[in-house]
Design a protein around this nucleic acid. Structure first.
Lengths: 206, 206
DNA sequence: GGCATCATGTGACTTCCTGTTACAAAGCCG
DNA sequence: CGGCTTTGTAACAGGAAGTCACATGATGCC
């Protein structure tokens, strides 16, 4: 059980999580490996093998119980509890992120939203008040925040990253277009819709 | 040259594109495979092998010229021209997407923004006016739009997808949390920050 | 109760991708 | 000219993922 998952397995388990939470919202209570395959385009045999490596979660002839499978996968990924994250930037993107239920569904709690703009400070987004940027460091330490989400324009992204890192954060999600220079022990995850789009286009145009 | 790229190669080439565009903005004009490796965590030998499979783009002892490499990769991915996309939803997320320079940088043009809310129709976002949702089908056909980006709440996502697909669109980017049911010849790309975050957490907590 | 059906769990095999190591060729600079 | 850098490639090893096949167990129909 102490073995480390490979990146491939962990990535696929995350996809299953996504499908399961949605399927649950749609009122289903069990699901087959074939159905998961339809939504993820991951081979059904592969899915069963991924899961069976950790225990026998399914019922033959029936499928998987969604609730219990959700719990099992969370257990495998060790992400069962609540996790606090900080959001930097209360602009349109920041607001969109803060008001989305998507994080709460997975036990991720946006503990604070920061912005340098005095006009935005104090205003509330979702049910959070925007905190002055100067308090970032203290808040990160006090509230045990381990992930920082950067939703500021490209010009400010590196500075935000530097501040997050010096406050002790080791995981940064970068929603700006900037490339970030960070120490080797900090993980940066970036999402670039335009590049993903080009990638999707390639496979469609052939 | 007519061979199809594997998904791995295409994905990596897209990452290179992202790094190159940013490096260019930072004023650099050449870059080594090692530098690309630092930003992408992709093996430098792998990068050189990916590129050399299509021609000799670099100069030994020097590196790659950023401008010409950008052009070469775009040529390989066949995404050199302008591509028109449609954005559904003019809420906070839609506004954030529409006002980001990220698409334009890669030759992707947001040709129209649609919303069902009469209050939003006619207002301008970036330098586009919001178009009534009813005109979606005609606009998609007239302007040769091949990609639809869904930035509406989960409840409306499936309906938006259905309408896009019946207008002829084959590539859908889904920024809602909903799972979409689509015909087999339509590609859906979804991005779920929360799930990516859980994935990132796993590797950090070990 | 018996039997057909369905979906999981799992083994064996193959294929292909990625990382590694190594090194020659080529450009640059003092 | 000679040292340094970086590309372009070859050879090899390891491992991940797809495919096929099949036994096992659960369910439901007749």
């Amino acid at each position: 059980m102490a073995e480390r998952l490979t990146v491939g397995v962990a990535a696929r388990l995350s996809r299953y999580l996504q499908v399961l939470t949605q399927a649950k919202k749609m009122g289903k209570d069990r699901i087959s490996s074939q159905e998961i395959s339809d939504y993820t385009n991951i081979n059904a045999t592969q899915i069963r093998r991924d899961l069976s490596g950790f225990g026998k979660f399914g019922k033959r002839g029936v499928g998987y119980n969604i609730d219990s499978l959700l719990g099992e996968i969370r257990k495998i990924l060790r992400t069962q509890g609540q996790h606090n994250i900080a959001l930097i930037g209360a602009g349109r993107l920041g607001q969109a992120i803060a008001s989305s239920p998507i994080f709460a569904e997975h036990g991720i709690n946006i503990a604070a939203v920061f912005d340098t703009d005095p006009d935005k400070v104090g205003r509330s987004i979702g049910n959070l008040a925007v905190t002055p940027y100067a308090e970032l460091s203290d808040t990160v330490r006090d509230r045990n925040i381990i992930v920082g989400v950067i939703a500021v324009p490209a010009e400010g992204a590196q500075a935000a990253a530097d501040d997050l890192i010096s406050a002790g954060i080791k995981i940064v999600f970068n929603y700006s277009e900037a490339l970030l220079d960070v120490p080797a022990d900090v993980a940066v995850h970036a999402s670039n819709p335009a590049v993903e789009l080009l990638y999707a286009l390639y496979f469609h145009l052939t």
